[in-house]
């Protein structure tokens, strides 16, 4: 195992980990606010599609990301209307979102790009002076597209908002004790709406990262279960955003290590390697997870005056 191998592993982990990171960060916000967003995958997928279409149309990756953000939030509006406002079952609505977005993006993709299969140009990366010269880590970590750095900053921004601001306190109260929040005169539904929209936006960006930076194309079903992995990361992170960072890149490594191993000529079963992250999660849950783990009001609709 030489430097080339590790550089490939780390670079691959970052490429695969960034979408997870953004989506998991979003999911964490809505989970803290008491909304279990099973439709995360659908939001990512529509974000990926929206990002790709806009980037392809305008030729600008920045406008592409804006498109991804808006697309993700648009899907999140469904969650807002059905789960937050109407108080319907979050799991059923989440699955409805997942299925319809899978179908819709595949359909739109076929209709628009069924014959042309366009590709996006690569997004330029920005080396950080000095740091990018470090062997192995330098070129794989500190020479990335700007969106990567923004994602890392977002981790700390979200962490700060959740833990240090009034809004963050309200969000966590909406998940742990919505009745108390309501009694304090804060509109629980408004707080939850904000949280779900943030989730949608971040999940959309995650999908956009996949399509615009990692793949350069949109392929139906390209999120491939990553939305669900992001949900797990968010649950394990328990509202602490640094754990989202760690979790995402651990999953990223697991997702990219097969390719890296093949690169250096080691043949292992991809199926067994692919099992690793899930095995780790199950073990982690079995060893460390206990009951008082998720917000008390998670997945429960809030209705005023109803206990």
């Amino acid at each position: 195992m030489d430097a080339e191998f590790w550089a490939a592993v780390i670079a691959g982990a970052i490429l695969a980990g960034m979408p997870l990171l953004l989506a998991a960060l979003g999911e964490m916000v809505s989970e803290q606010a008491g909304i279990l967003n099973i439709g995360l995958e659908g939001m990512m997928l529509f974000g990926a599609y929206g990002g790709f279409v806009v980037a392809n149309w305008t030729g600008s990756s920045w406008l592409g990301f804006l498109g991804a953000l808006i697309a993700g939030m648009a899907v999140a509006m469904l969650m807002v209307v059905f789960c937050v406002r109407m108080g319907r079952d979050q799991i059923v609505v989440g699955i409805a979102i997942l299925l319809s977005m899978q179908g819709l993006t595949s359909l739109l993709h076929q209709v628009q790009f069924g014959e042309s299969y366009p590709r996006l140009d690569g997004v330029p990366s920005i080396p950080i002076p000095g740091l990018s010269k470090i062997p192995v880590i330098g070129p794989s970590v500190f020479d990335q597209p700007l969106m990567f750095y923004i994602g890392i900053v977002l981790i700390f921004v979200v962490g700060w908002v959740l833990n240090k601001t009034n809004l963050g306190l309200n969000i966590r109260a909406a998940g742990w004790k919505p009745v108390a929040l309501d009694n304090a005169g804060v509109d629980v539904l408004k707080i939850r709406t904000i949280a779900v929209l943030v989730t949608g936006g971040l999940a959309g960006l995650g999908g956009g990262y996949m399509a615009i930076i990692a793949a350069g194309v949109f392929v139906p079903f390209m999120t491939h279960g990553q939305g669900f992995i992001a949900i797990v990361i968010a649950m394990l992170a328990r509202g602490r955003s640094v754990w989202v960072l760690i979790g995402s890149f651990l999953f990223g490594i697991a997702l990219s290590i097969t390719t890296a191993l093949q690169l250096v000529g080691v043949q292992v079963s991809t199926d067994l390697i692919n099992m690793l992250p899930f095995l780790v999660v199950i073990l982690a849950l079995a060893l460390f997870a206990r009951q008082s783990y998720l917000p008390a009001a998670l997945a429960l609709p809030f209705e005023r005056g109803k206990r």
């Binding site: 609505v93 409805a96 299925l99 319809s100 899978q102 179908g103 359909l107 076929q110 209709v111 139906p220």
Partner: peptide, 16 residues
Amino acid sequence: GLPNDFLLLLVGLILF
């Protein structure tokens, strides 16, 4: 001339 996945969208819509 549509992808098979249109069915997923139908099921999703029905669920909504």
